[in-house]
Design a protein around this nucleic acid. Structure first.
Length: 583
RNA sequence: GCACCCGUAGCUCAGUGGAUAGAGCAGUGGAUUUCUAAUCCUCUGGUCGCAGGUUCGAUCCCUGCCGGGUGCGCCA
């Protein structure tokens, strides 16, 4: 908010000073790297000085002479080689506080241009449990969806479940030959996984089993009633259980349009692409090749082999007539564009699939799609050996297992602290802290970095973790509980202590931070910001007693507490983390 | 081979074309008859993988190397 205003004012000052800005140049204003210099800073004068052949400090002075910011700044200075440093006035900060208190969006302005955004995330496979690898897609996708909605976009979340594919040959064969109905009732996914693993192992030992599985798959694809019924039951049972998991994680989807939903569209899609010359038949398969529209090194359909660029086609139909991952994705894009009128589609999928998406996006564009498609990639979660967790063999840590353990540890901590709460309250608090900790551990990290899975990392309750942020929130609420009766917060505010000012300043930055998150699809920016808010609040809390203060000072401090409370609660909710009044 | 991602403190990780590169953990020494200590404050800890280049200024951008990971015609 302040950043945007200062940017506008700077631009106006350039105009007023008669300085013509280069085409497309927008003076950048950022939060000051060191608060000693001010609250915000701009390097515009230094950047322009070369192009305009002027001394940067002299140029800065010209701008300052024309700058009209007295309504929000108490001081502007030119420092070092030509930095413009802005110090906000107490009045401006106070005004911001009252906005944070009253506004139902906590002072975060909506986007100027709302878009329709489809977000594709989580996407678990049928008959396979969600493991820690699903943490990233699920939590990052959910958080991005929350933030996008919060700042005014229309968001459609779609869980593109892996409910069709070659694994069903094995599952159906296993269902027919060794399914345990009793166990299926108890824990459907576990039983299906057990069966799948057993058959998978059997196919490796015995070629004949593999052939039988393939037969079952073909029958399914040809619409055999029995196999179709088994498949449907597998999907139903798995989805039912998945819904419970998502419920526990507080993750919601608008749609569950799995791969099977697009089956009917695949044959016509391939026919259409052949007809339009986008795809062609090669070695029996149908595939999309390079159209030579971009440089070879940027072309997803080319690969270099000994100084020679060779075709790296994207296959959309196998020699045996079967369709592939890419085919379904193309049909899915059609649907999302046509039915949902998507302006943008975001895929929250791991980095290893980058090439796949580059090919699919390029193919979709050749078919005329103008929708902006973004692959929001993330790094892998590695095993203790530093290598990728293997999903095929299934030797990974289960998602629910992690959450349960986290809740248990939080429960133990609550027990140890013993605030005299009921068991039910402790359970609820442990649930919020436990699942919040796991989410925060994921979301506070840069999505592109690979990381080693560690129980300690996921479950730590000390340091930069969810409990730290929740504890700050709890401290704000505790003060209001002690007030005995409601206190009317009045607009007469006065900032006297540095800790008060620092907190007010930090809270004001929420307006900018929420938008920055979507700039690069990075929830960790929000997590980091909230950590700073909590840290600043804890500092304020130690330095400034609220309840023992009086008059305007007390009113100001209470206002700061309420504003902190609102920013933390809202911010955490954008990460998908709930808050608790006590802990 | 080619493409993409990563390399920052003992460990786990943030961060940015700008001013003295930051947190947490671990280690150290303190603070509380509390507004909830799941807190705060000290100190210790760095050739930002290496070498060039662009720039007034590079850990960040470019090039080349080194190291780790991933992906590259009929799995999803």
């Amino acid at each position: 908010m302040f950043r945007a205003v200062l940017t506008d004012r700077l631009q106006a000052a350039f105009t007023a000073a008669g300085i013509a800005l280069p085409e497309g140049f927008v003076p950048s204003v950022v939060i000051a790297s060191d608060t000693r210099y001010g609250d915000y800073q701009s390097n515009a004068a230094m950047v322009l000085s070369k192009q305009l052949k002027q001394n940067p400090r002299a140029l800065a002075q010209q701008i300052v002479d024309q700058l009209q910011v007295t309504d929000i700044c108490e001081k502007i200075s030119i420092d070092g080689p030509g930095f413009l440093n802005f110090t906000l006035s107490p009045a401006a900060l106070i005004q911001r506080l009252s906005v944070i208190l009253k506004d139902d969006h906590v002072g975060v302005p909506p986007v100027t241009k709302a878009k329709r955004i489809v977000i594709d995330f989580s996407a678990p496979n049928i008959a396979k449990p969600m493991h820690v690898g699903h943490i990233r897609s699920t939590f990052i996708g959910d958080s991005l969806a929350r933030v996008a909605r919060f700042i005014g976009h229309t968001v459609i979340t779609d869980n593109h479940v892996g409910d069709w594919g070659t694994q069903f040959g094995m599952i159906i064969y296993g269902w027919k030959t060794q399914l345990d109905q009793a166990k299926l009732k108890l824990d459907p996914i576990l039983e299906l996984v057990t069966v799948y693993k057993a058959i998978n192992a059997a196919t490796k030992a015995d070629e004949a089993v593999l052939t039988l599985c393939k037969t079952e798959l073909v029958k399914l694809q040809q619409g055999d009633p029995e196999n179709l019924a088994i498949w449907k039951e597998c999907v139903r049972l798995t989805l039912e259980q998945l819904e419970k998991v998502y419920g526990a994680l507080d993750v919601k989807f608008d749609h569950y349009l799995g791969e099977s939903f697009y089956n009917e569209a695949l044959a016509p899609l391939v026919a259409d692409m052949l007809e339009k010359g986008i795809a062609k038949v090669s070695e029996g398969a149908t595939a999309v090749f390079s159209d030579g529209s971009v440089k070879p090194e940027n072309d997803p359909f080319l690969i270099s082999d000994k100084d020679e660029w060779k075709a790296a086609p994207c296959i959309i139909r196998k020699t045996d007539g079967g369709f592939l991952y890419a085919t379904t994705d193309l049909a899915t894009i059609d649907y999302r564009v046509k039915e949902w009128k998507a302006d943008e589609i975001w895929y929250v999928v791991g980095a290893p699939q980058q090439l796949h998406f580059r090919q699919v996006f390029a193919a979709a564009k050749r078919r005329g799609a103008t929708t902006e498609m973004t692959h929001i990639a993330f790094g892998s979660i590695l095993g203790p050996d530093g290598k990728m967790f293997k999903t095929r063999s299934g030797e990974t840590v289960g998602l629910l297992e992690v959450i349960d353990e986290a809740i248990e540890r939080a429960r133990a901590a609550a027990e140890e602290k013993d605030q005299g709460l009921s068991d039910a309250d402790k359970d609820e608090i442990a649930r919020i802290i436990g699942s919040g900790s796991v989410k925060y551990a994921e979301l506070s990290q840069n999505r592109l970095t690979d990381y080693k899975f560690s129980w300690d990392k996921m479950l730590s309750l000390q340091g930069n973790t969810a409990p730290y942020l929740l504890n700050a929130y709890v401290r704000t609420r505790s003060i209001f509980r002690k007030l005995e009766g409601t206190v009317e917060l009045t607009p007469d505010l006065e900032i006297t202590e540095p800790a008060e000012r620092a907190l007010a300043m930090k809270l004001a930055q929420f307006a900018e931070n929420a938008h920055d998150v979507l700039e690069d699809h990075r929830p960790n920016l929000l997590a980091n910001y909230l950590y700073e808010v909590a840290n600043t609040y804890h500092g304020f809390y130690e330095a400034c007693n609220v309840l023992r203060s009086e008059g305007t000072i007390r009113n100001t401090r209470l206002t700061l507490c309420e504003a902190t409370s609102r920013v933390l609660k809202t911010g955490l909710s954008l990460l998908g983390i709930q808050t608790t009044e006590r802990m």
